[in-house]
Write a protein that binds this DNA or RNA. Sequence first.
DNA 1: ATAGGGTTAG
Length: 640
Amino acid sequence: MRSLFNRLPCKRLAAARRSRRCLHSHSQPHPLLATFSRLSDDGPLPAALALLPDLTAAGVRADPISLCRLIKLCVRHGTANDGRLIHDHVSRTANSGGEAPDTGLFVSNSLISMYAKFGLLHDALELFGDMPHRNVVSWTTVVAALANAGGRKKEALRFLVDMKRDDVAPNSYTYSSVLGACGTPGVLAAVHASIVKVGLDSDVFVRSSLIDAYMKLGDLDSGRGVFDEMVTRDLVVWNSIIAGFAQSGDGVGAVELFMRMKESGFSANQGTLTSVLRACTGMVMLDLGRQVHAHVLKYERDLILHNALLDMYCKCGSLQEADALFSRMPRRDVISWSTMVSGLAQNGRSVEALKVFDLMQSEGPTPNHITMVGVLFACSHAGLVEDGWYYFRSMEKLFGIQPEREHCNCMVDLLGRSGKLDEAVKFISEMNFEPDSVIWRTLLGACRMHKNANLAAYAAREILKLEPEDQGARILLSNTYADLRQWLDAEKSWKVMRNQGAKKEPGRSWIELGKQVHVFIAGELSHPCSAGIVQELNRLIRLVTDLGYVPLTEFVLQDLESEQKEDLLKYHSEKLAVAFAMMNSMKGKPVRIMKNLRICGDCHSFVKLVSKSEGKVIIIRDPVRFHHFQDGVCSCGDYW
DNA sequence: ATAGGGTTAG
C-alpha cells in the first residue's frame, strides 16, 4: 500500500490520502460542510461567514482548504475584520484535537499572509509567534511581509537568519522576497552567495529580484551581469532591468533595452511603459514619450502609468499636454495632483501651481508632505515670501503634515533667495532639526546669489564640518569668491580641491533629435557636426550682440584674461546645444534642452536674445527647474 | 498555505 502511494504523482497522492482519511474517520460528510465549501469558493462572502457559528454549534470542523479559500476571499474584498472573524473561529476550534498537525499550519499561514496584505504586521507576527510548528511557508510569509513593509527590512533579514537557525531551509520564494530587504552591498553580496550555494540562482523570480536589488543599490554592472547571464527571460525580468536603468538615470540605456525586449518577442505591459516613460522624463525625450502615450490609452484605469505620463509631459516642459491629460484623467490621486503642482512650479508658473493646489483642497485628495514640498517650491521660485510662510505655518493645522527637513529647506531657499539672508539664518537656528549639509548648501547658494561672501564662508565651513570629503561646498565657496573677484581666495579654495583630487563636474547638455539623443560637453567640440555648430554659434553671437548681448564674464570662475573668459563662456554646453538645435529643429516647433548643471547667467541672457532674434521657443531644463525662453523673455522672470 | 517589476520631492 505504502509503496503504491509513493509511486503516484503528487496530486493524486494527496487526493488518495484524503479519500482514505474520509473512509476511516467519518462515513458521511456533514451537509453544512458541503454548503460551506461551496460558499467559500465563490461567495457570497457574508453567507459563508454566517455559516461559521453554525458549524461550531453543530460540532463540525471546517476543512482547511475551504478556510484558506475564504481567507483569500476576504483579502480580495479588502475586509480585514472578516479575516479576524475567521481567525477567531479557528482559534476557538483549534484544540479540540484529532486532526493532522499540518491542517492548522495551512490555515495559520493563510492568516499570516492575510494580515500582512492588510498591513497588520503586528497581528501577523503575533500569530506567527503563537504557532506550535512553522514551516518554510510560515517563515517566508513573514519575511515577505517585513521586506514589503516600510522600514522593517533589517527584521526581514533577521528572520532569514532565524529560520536557518531553526533548520528550515529558505526556498526560491523566500529568497525572492528577502532580496528586496538587502539594504547594503555587503548584505546583498552575502545573500546572493548563499543563493548560489543552494543552487537557486537560476530561478526567474530570484533573478528578477536580484537584478532589482543590485540596481536599487546603484550597482548597475552587477544588475546587468545577472541579466546578461540569463538564457530564459520573462517579461518581469525585462521590466526589472529596464526599470533599473530608468531609475538610475540612464534613460538611453533603458530605451535600448526596451527595443531589444520587443525584438525578443515580448510586448510591453503597464510596468514596462511606466519605466519607458520615466526614461523619457529623465532625458527629455518628448517625441518618444508621445509615442508611448498611444500605448497608454489601452490602460485607461492604470493610475501609476498615467501619473508617469503626466510627469513626462511636465518634465519635458509641455504643460499644455500635461494639463490636457490631467483634465481628462478619470481618476486622480495625491500623486497626480502633486505632480501637477510641482510641474507647474518647476516650469515657472507658480501662481497657477498654487491655483491647482487650491483646487486640490476643494475637490482633490488630502495633500501629503510631497505636495507641500511642491507648494513651497512654487513660493520660493516666485519670491512669494508671505504665501510661503502661510503654507509652512498652516500645513500642520490644515492637513496634519509636520514640517520635515525638505520643507525647512524650501523655507531657507525662499528666505535666502529673496534676499532675506538674516531671516534665513534665524530660521535655521530655530528649526526643529539639526541643520544638515543640504540646508547649508541652500544657504550657500543664496549667499552666492546675493554676493555675501562672509556668510557663504560660514555656510561652507558648516558643510565641511559635516562632510569633510564633499567638494560641493568648496566649489560654491570659490564661486562666491570669484563673483566678488577675490581671486586669491578663490584660488586658495580651488587649490584645496585640486589637492584633494576634486574635479568640477563638466557641464553637459543634451537634446532629442530624430530618434537620437545628442550630447554636448562644455569646452569640447566632440560632436560630429562641431564645425557647423561653431559657425552657427558665431552667427548667433553676432545677431544677439546687435541686440545688446555682452558676455557676462563674471560667470567664469577662473582669473583669466577677458578674451579667454569669453571663449570659456562661448562653449558652455547649452550654447552648443542651442546652436545645434537652431540648425536642425523644425520650424515653429519649440526646442527642448536638458542640462546637468544649473544654467549660468550669461547663457540665460544669451538664450533670451536668441529666442527673440530667431523667433523660437527654447526650453531649457536644469536639475531644479525649467526656463521657457520666448521673444526675449524667460518664464523664470530672471529669478532662479 | 509563501515569491519578482512600474508613479510625485530630495
